[in-house]
Amino acid sequence: MPPLVMALMSILIGVTGCVGYVYFSNLVLDRVIFPASGQTCARNIGRANLVRPWLFLFPALAGSMLYLVFPFAGAFWRSLFDREGDAFIGFANYRALGADHVFQGALANSLLWVLVVPAAATCLGLIAARLTDRLRWANLARAAIFMPVTMSLVGAALIWKFVYANDADIGLLNAIRATLGAAGPLDVLQIPVWNSFFLMAVLIWTQTGFAMVILSAALRAIPREIIEAAIMDGADATQIFLRIEVPQIKGTITVVWTLVTILVLKVFDLVYAMTGGNFGTQVLPGFMMGVMFRDDGRASAVAMVLMILVLPILAWNIGQARKGGD
């Protein structure tokens, strides 16, 4: 069977399967289990409506159980075993990680990324959102800022490798340095600590557009009369932005911030493509990938650490979303 036909077939089966599931499961519920007829008609309708949400939730719940919760539990279990997976060694993998300098470096780098990238991307996005709102060619500016969001991180990494290239004829950065009269080209990706920031710049570049689009929508949702009231009250543009607009979109800022944070904790491809994690730029996902080929138990432990780092942010984000919904 040609691959195209196979793909079409699977789409067809998938879609009809989903539609069929929703249709027939509701049919069974309404006709067979709690029929809306006879003496218990009203009670049956009520009961059917109590069950119905679960019918819709079931596929998603089953999927996340199968592909998220089960592997998570499995990974945790695996992290308590040795390299071959034969001997139970308790928390020895975690203890070994704690003593591992490479792991400590990667953890420190990951934390640095979490501190810098979401803050920078959200702030720049917010400023871009505010500024482009006043421009006549705002849509063009927005499109330009948003473009990197659509790019794969590996693609972005390749572009920025050119920018950072250790050659004044190729690298923009070194070309600028040469024009300013610096002696020789510099490989910025090899300067310890600073190189991490040059990598972060790439991610900030891609995430600013994302932050801008969402924050721009939030800014536009602020009623015009509130801004006008602030104008009448004598606030200038900066004061209106900082004291009237930003506090009102705090919820959206939080959501953007957490989404970028979660993305940052997962970032692997960017570092892999630009430095391969060398020169002290390694981050946790990259470290995990390296360990994975040698020791599954230890790699699982790294995955657990990553999970624990994301968990509080996730919980807080859901809490914020709940508050916003009320």
């Binding site: 009623p223 509130i226 006008e228 009231a229 104008i231 009448m232 606030a235 506090p247």
Partner: peptide, 21 residues
């Protein structure tokens, strides 16, 4: 003259209160 320096105060139809204050 900018609004704040006209010696004027305005009451808006939608009240236009600052919701976060």
């Amino acid at each position: 003259v900018p609004p704040a320096r006209r010696g004027i105060a305005m009451v808006f139809q939608s009240y236009a209160l600052y919701p976060h204050m």
